[in-house]
Design a protein around this nucleic acid. Structure first.
Lengths: 199, 199
DNA sequence: GATAGTGGCGAGTGCCACTATCTATACTTT
DNA sequence: AAAGTATAGATAGTGGCACTCGCCACTATC
């Protein structure tokens, strides 16, 4: 971790400045190191932008902000913003999403960032001519439900209140990466079983 | 979709050139449109780079290449390449991945791109101080297994051989986005159930 | 007292996905 | 037939992003 990079993060508001012990010496503590690790994790593994990380961090650090608002901010930075408004099928996809949510009995508004992201992905699927893939959506929803329950249970039982927001952000971002990697490992296994060939 | 953008894609080898009907007229057909949609889906929703898409497309279009090799190429472009070699905990994380694969009875080499990606994510988790999250890994693996089985079944039953490679690529890339979005929707629901508040 | 490092800051770099501009040609309208 | 519009192809430029450099005044250390 080079010094200029750290100075850059300080300037961008990702990292609090060190405490000045003299005009040209500042001391950094464990919290700075911790914060740096968080930044690298969100940047490298989570794929967030520096600006997005700043917003998330500001939200995390603001003790006034109610928890669910912080999570809202985090979600809106974490979910990549596709602007596919011109996509012909997006409206139809939004309807599918609303139906799925209703069928599942989920309490969630379909027009939140996650619902929009799902609609975008479904619309892209349709565009590409693999709309039939939507057939397995129920399996995806089952799996997502299980995972989400496990996430929440972990958070509820093992995380102290003051760490809550940060761990939810970390879990959301890194959880995506973990699941995606596992899905690919499972693909390799499943395809080996089905076709008798390891990839 | 602007004309210069299309020409750019042609130059970059993402899109075959149109058939010249005269020195300054080329005709594009339905396959070009289809290919364009694929490019946009991988770019916007899948988050691949133009160079990565080129590699994937070259692999898809090469009928000589055995299927499992194409999927290997696709996987190596789809999985983002983290270079966390200097991460202290990466070796330990690799061991966890190998153990997980063994415990699951999966047939997959832990040193493939997906295994590396998983190790990286786990190492990042540990760095950030949320190593305990690894507790729920089994739930993730269960879910990944289910999803992967559904993916494969769909492909085996509904996809013609000549479309196989493309649909696996599409399914892998868009499937990630779909699952991630669903996980967030399920989070909202689960947190509403647990804490009685919608986000 | 020479060397090396620091904070702070503006400017620069390299990469990437386009986008603008240019030339030469051809189709289209009047 | 002349003027206007459009296209292919190619080179160069743009804007955004994550750094990285260079400069200054100063200090810590050998």
């Amino acid at each position: 971790m080079s010094v200029p990079t750290i100075k850059f993060y300080v300037r961008e508001g990702l990292l609090p400045a060190g405490e000045l012990t003299s005009p040209n010496q500042a001391s950094y503590g464990e919290t700075h190191v911790q914060r740096l690790r968080l930044i690298r994790a969100l940047l490298d593994v989570g794929g967030l932008s520096v600006a997005g990380i700043r917003d998330v961090i500001v939200a995390i650090d603001d003790p006034e902000r109610p928890v669910h608002k912080v999570l809202g901010t985090a979600a809106s930075r974490i979910v990549p913003r596709y602007d596919r408004e011109q996509d012909a099928g997006i409206e139809e996809a939004r309807k599918s999403v609303a139906e799925l949510i209703a069928a599942r009995g989920w309490t969630a508004y379909p027009d939140n960032p996650a619902g929009e992201a799902l609609a975008t992905a479904l619309a892209a699927l349709e565009d590409v001519g693999h709309g039939g893939f939507a057939e397995v959506l129920d399996t995806y929803a089952d799996a997502a439900e299980r995972v989400a329950r496990a996430d929440l249970e972990y958070v509820a039982h093992h995380v102290a209140r003051e760490e809550l927001v940060e761990s939810v952000v970390v879990g959301t971002v890194l959880g995506d990466a973990i699941f995606a990697a596992m899905r690919r490992l499972a693909h390799v296994d499943a395809s080996h079983r089905a076709f008798g060939r390891a990839t």
